[in-house]
Simulated scan of single mutants.
Amino acid sequence: MRLAALLLLALAAGCSPKPKVLRVCADPNNLPFSDARGEGFENKLAELVADELGMTVEYTWWAQRRGYVRNTLKEGQCDVWPGVATQVEMLATTQPYYRSTYVFLTRADRHLQLASLDDPQLRTLRIGVQMIGDDSSNTPPTHALARRGIVQNVRGYMLYGDYAQPNPPAEIVRAVDRGDVDVAVVWGPLAGYFAARAEHLLTLTPVTPWLDGPQWPMVFDISMGVRKDDLELRDRIDEALVRRAADVQALLKAYGVPAVAAPAV
């Protein structure tokens, strides 16, 4: 009997399930969001959620270029994208874990005090904007400035950038720091993180109006996204985010993410 019991224990140990894995889609060169060393806040968020769910993190690394979702989540290479716009059409998304805004980024020693897209200074200042590519899919501030006829004094910095360099989207922040442009209109989390590492003191001011016309918001809710048919995982992540809400907010604050309240409608 004793020998049989020992054999059963040995078999049970040999057949024990492997630790559950949270398979995360992430860019290996995209701070402050993620990088291959796990230093981005989306890396930390994934680890926090996985810990809450009793899972370990496994990454599928893929540069966030066009076709990112198609080549990662939809190919079954990974199961969750930690930083995606809430209710984006192609995915099922959690409740938002933060809300942030585009900001005017300037050097403090310039004392420009910009806040509105309607500020007349924008017609003469050198302005940096984040660009994606063709005009139909560029960032909201780019469209908002063009709608006002502010084009000739605008310089584009590619959101994708030179991937051979570290954290290519950060070039627009470096341009403000160097004085290549007078002001840049930058997505808040990127601006906040790299402004803290700039040579000069930089000022971040939320862009107003928060909604420029019916289709160009400056404020976005951000969630974790999964495949549309993976609602069970989405709901489990939602519950983990609620339970660890204080830790999530502390993480965002540590990375300089500018948080904003829900816009007044």
Rank of each mutant, 00 (worst) to 15 (best):
L201Q: 14
A50H: 07
W216G: 00
V80D: 02
T208G: 08
K44L: 14
Q95L: 13
L202M: 05
F104N: 03
R37G: 10
P214V: 03
G14M: 12
P96I: 11
K228V: 08
R70L: 12
T139L: 13
S116Q: 13
A26R: 08
R227E: 11
D162L: 03
A240R: 01
A261I: 12
Y102Q: 06
P120I: 13
Q165Y: 01
A36R: 15
E58T: 08
E171L: 07
P140G: 02
A13C: 13
A246R: 11
N153D: 05
D177H: 04
R2C: 10
L8E: 03
D230R: 12
G225M: 03
E239P: 00
A5D: 11
R66E: 14
L211I: 05
V49T: 07
T101L: 09
A4W: 12
D177A: 06
N71D: 15
H200W: 03
W81P: 00
S223N: 03
D162P: 01
W81V: 14
V21Y: 04
L201C: 06
A245I: 07
F41Y: 15
T208C: 03
G128S: 09
N30R: 08
L8K: 07
G161I: 00
L7E: 09
V248M: 06
W187Y: 15
P141Y: 02
R70H: 13
L31C: 03
T205P: 00
S116R: 15
P189N: 10
D162E: 11
F104S: 04
D182W: 09
D109Q: 11
P189F: 08
E199W: 02
D238C: 07
Y255S: 04
A10P: 01
L201N: 09
A63Y: 09
C25D: 03
R147K: 14
F194Q: 02
V80K: 01
V103W: 00
T93V: 05
V88T: 15
D27Q: 01
D247V: 11
G83F: 04
Q165K: 15
T86P: 04
D135A: 15
K74G: 01
M224R: 04
R123C: 08
V185A: 07
V21D: 00
L31F: 05
L105P: 00
S136E: 14
D247C: 10
K228W: 00
T94Y: 07
F41L: 08
I237T: 01
D118T: 13
R23M: 08
A196R: 14
Q130D: 06
T106D: 04
V24E: 08
G179H: 09
D51F: 11
V207E: 04
H111N: 14
L45Q: 06
H143W: 13
G76W: 09
M90V: 15
P19N: 11
V24I: 15
V84Y: 12
A198G: 04
V57E: 04
P189S: 12
G76V: 03
A240C: 05
A12G: 10
I132H: 09
N30D: 07
V257S: 06
Y97V: 05
V24G: 10
R197K: 14
K20D: 12
P217N: 01
D180C: 01
G14C: 13
A12E: 03
M131R: 11
A108R: 15
A195W: 01
L48G: 10
E75H: 09
N71Q: 14
D212P: 06
D177W: 06
P166W: 02
S16R: 15
R148N: 09
P140M: 00
L6K: 12
L241Y: 10
L9D: 07
T124Q: 08
K253N: 13
T93Y: 07
K44D: 11
W61F: 14
